[in-house]
Amino acid sequence: MATTVLTLVGSLRNGSTNRQLAEATALNAPAGVEVNVFSGLENIPFYNEDQDIEGQVPAAALELRAAAAEADALLLVSPEYNGTMPAVLKNAIDWLSRPFGNSVAKDMPAAVIGTAFGQYGGVWAQDEARKALAIAGANVLEDVKLSIPNSVVRFADLHPKDDVEVAGQVAAVLEGIRAVAESN
């Protein structure tokens, strides 16, 4: 049986290098790993506990929770906006972490990767995402990381899926996720 990895992309822009990195991850998944890139984060309203009541939870939030419940692991692909993760990722983590005590992310293996224009590849954003995931109860894989710097230049004429180095790196990330998911 394959390890299913739910992938959440923090950039909503169609031509985003992080969206492309998520595509590269799905296309370079090793045998036994299935990557599902979630679409629709932009449709999920900001978390509001007043809406998080049975029968009133927004449909888009229910879709996210259901996708996470069916997955064996989470992979966040994050750009860096003003030194931190995009609001859409933080919002997704908030919806996954609730209701309190019933987080669908509880104990779920989770990793964060990404690419950014700067020289460090968005590590601040990724660190913030790891922190939020850990507080949400996920089993954050601190050793499973990938930060690709200079994205605008590196991927100007080359999709990440066609970058041999990146293909190997994302496959290694997925292998790390699978190893932990299978041991749970």
Rank of each mutant, 00 (worst) to 15 (best):
E175M: 07
A110C: 10
P160L: 01
I44M: 10
T3V: 15
F38W: 11
D50V: 04
S11I: 01
A73L: 02
S78K: 05
A116L: 06
R154G: 01
N48K: 01
K161W: 01
E142N: 10
A87T: 14
E49T: 11
N91K: 08
E182I: 10
G83W: 13
M85P: 02
M108F: 06
N91E: 07
A69N: 12
M85S: 06
N43P: 08
A68C: 08
V144E: 11
I93R: 05
E42L: 06
P58K: 11
V9I: 10
N150L: 12
N48V: 00
A156K: 13
V5Q: 03
V152P: 00
V123A: 12
V35K: 02
H159L: 10
P160C: 03
K145Y: 01
A67P: 03
N43K: 15
S78V: 07
E42D: 15
E63T: 09
A179G: 07
A110D: 07
I53P: 00
N184K: 15
R98G: 02
N82G: 10
D143F: 09
G55Q: 01
A73H: 03
V144H: 08
D127F: 11
R154Y: 03
E70M: 10
V37S: 05
L158H: 00
A73R: 01
F46G: 12
E128P: 00
A26N: 04
G101W: 01
R13L: 09
P99I: 04
A111M: 13
D107E: 15
L174G: 06
P86L: 03
G168S: 07
G83T: 14
L133F: 10
P45G: 09
A73S: 09
